[in-house]
């Protein structure tokens, strides 16, 4: 690693937790970014909100549980988690017991958020 300049990034998570490797790739990218002191936030959009589904248990299928791994985000000082309110409603999700603090955004607010960063990483 060379000396790292600090950038603000938004990681946009749009895929379901177990349908592909993208949820895991995004999570690892978030943790690595935190480890190297970048300023990052997370946005769960569309099917990506399903990563926050309570009571999921990847262990039943012998794989890492994405939901429980996401619960560790505050320990990496990743504190700003945004969700697409419309997607949460579509899947009738109860996020009241979420281990991470979540802010709901509608479409125009999502766009307002996206333009505040140096880079967008779409997963």
């Amino acid at each position: 690693m060379t000396a790292v300049t600090k950038k603000t990034i938004l990681i946009v998570l749009r895929h379901s937790p177990y349908g592909s490797g993208l949820a895991k790739a995004a999570l690892n990218t978030a943790l690595a970014s935190a480890a190297f002191d970048q300023s990052l936030d997370l946005l769960f959009m569309g099917n990506g909100v399903l990563q926050l589904q309570p009571d999921q248990d990847g262990r039943v299928k012998g794989v890492k549980d994405v939901g429980r791994q996401l619960a560790s985000l505050p320990l990496y000082d990743i504190n700003h988690v945004y969700v697409d309110a419309q997607a949460v409603e579509r899947y009738n999700m109860d996020l009241s017991k979420s281990p991470v603090e979540i802010r709901r955004l509608d479409g125009p607010e999502i766009r307002q958020l996206m333009i505040c960063y140096d880079h967008l990483l779409g997963f």
Partner: peptide, 15 residues
């Protein structure tokens, strides 16, 4: 058991 992962140093210190 809680987070289904092995912590990196930063998370371990905070935990």
């Amino acid at each position: 058991l809680t987070y289904d992962s092995t912590p990196a140093m930063r998370a371990l210190v905070k935990y």
